[in-house]
């Protein structure tokens, strides 16, 4: 007999999330922090003067990037049967490109704080998303969208607190991104220089085309 189960559930099982993120459940807050900061840096770098603001409780990460259309973002991110990334098809020396970061964040938040919403704000919209995997394998998603005063960038708030013991990877990310300014719970780390990088818009070497990203 062959048993089957919906792959979407993988995003909500602690063991599967550990495989996807490389960290154990006790370090999920750290993984959420890292993924949010990596995403924020990717977006903020589009401006030329990246600024990332981090608050530990509740964990909030804000960037000064161009922002995103939340409807478009949610339509891609909340489909747990596909991977969605602007970097998925390109092999470049860049922060993650697996296209599952936001999905794993929803999963880790579900494990740590079930039924509490993840909140995104960008381009004058705010959405609070609550996700609950059902025993049938169905994923119940409840996004509540509202209009708010428009502010630059993208802000993500998750119902998780990040304490000092989880800041090691953040310190490393600050260290290796000297071209970005960070504001972290009242402390400021202004940019100290410019960084030479392989441009994200540069053409790509044909070292490997990824032909199929569907996780089905």
């Amino acid at each position: 007999m062959i048993y089957t189960f919906p792959r979407a559930k993988e995003y909500f099982e602690p063991d599967e999330l550990t495989l996807a993120t490389g960290v154990s459940r006790s370090r999920f807050p750290e993984a959420i922090l890292k993924e949010l900061v990596d995403n924020a840096l990717d977006e903020a770098e589009k401006t030329g003067s990246p600024v990332v603001e981090i608050t530990g409780s509740p964990l909030t990460v804000k960037d000064n990037g161009p922002g995103v259309d939340l409807n478009e973002l949610l339509s891609k991110v909340l489909d747990f049967n596909v991977r969605a990334s602007s970097k998925l098809a390109w092999k470049r020396p860049t922060r993650g490109y697996l296209g599952n970061a936001l999905k794993t964040i929803f999963g880790m938040v579900h494990v740590l704080a079930p039924d509490k919403p993840v909140v995104f704000e960008s381009r004058g919209q705010r959405v609070a998303v609550t996700i609950r995997p059902l025993s049938t394998g169905e994923i119940r998603i409840n996004p509540v969208l509202e209009t708010v005063p428009e502010r630059p960038g993208f802000t993500a708030t998750v119902p998780v607190s990040v304490s000092g013991m989880f800041y090691e990877t953040l310190i490393a990310t600050i260290l290796f991104n000297p071209g970005a300014s960070f504001k972290w719970d009242g402390f400021e780390f202004p940019a100290v220089g410019t960084v030479e990088k392989y441009r994200r818009t540069a053409r790509c070497p044909p070292t490997g085309l990824i032909l199929n990203h569907s996780s089905t």
Binding site: G96, A172, L175
Partner: peptide, 28 residues
């Protein structure tokens, strides 16, 4: 402290005997 592709790593990329402060590899 180690990083990969301009991002901090969860674990040190090298073993405990590695001397000093290692930093960002940016390999493809």
């Amino acid at each position: 402290i180690t990083g990969l592709n301009f991002s901090g790593t969860y674990r040190t990329l090298f073993d405990d005997n590695f001397m000093g402060v290692g930093c960002g590899a940016c390999a493809d």
